[in-house]
């Protein structure tokens, strides 16, 4: 299953890549491959912009406009402001300890 083509914002700066392979380890959609000790994006449309690769890239070679692919979250952020988030409850900062 693939989502819209050419929509994902994933960018790889091959010059900065150290070839550690961490992006391959964390990507839940297998969009990367190592080719000659450098990561390459082999399936850009497979990217769901979770941001795991960029967060775990120690050399800062990856950038992605990280966010949740959820219509309700995006509509809520348009209506009420803030970043789209998975918090469907609408409640935040619940003051319950333990």
């Amino acid at each position: 299953m693939k989502y819209l083509s050419n929509a994902a914002t994933l960018k790889l700066d091959a010059g900065k890549c150290a070839g550690c392979g961490m992006c391959i380890e964390v990507c839940p959609h297998g969009v990367f491959r190592l080719e000659g000790k450098r990561a390459v994006i082999t399936d850009p449309d497979g990217c769901m912009e979770c941001g795991a690769c960029a967060v775990n890239c120690a050399s800062g070679a990856l950038a992605v406009d990280k966010g949740v692919g959820c219509a309700a979250a995006i509509i809520n952020s348009i209506l009420y402001g803030g970043e789209p988030s998975c918090d469907c409850t609408g409640k935040s900062n619940k003051d319950s300890c333990c």
Binding site: T9, G46, E49, V68, G69, A73, I74, I75
Partner: peptide
């Protein structure tokens, strides 16, 4: 159906925004 994007394992934010831009 668009609401289901929040439950899938493969929809990204840019794509959903693109859909909403014409959808809404």
């Amino acid at each position: 159906a668009l609401q289901f994007t929040g439950s899938t394992t493969f929809t990204g934010m840019s794509g959903v925004k693109k859909e909403l831009k014409t959808g809404i």
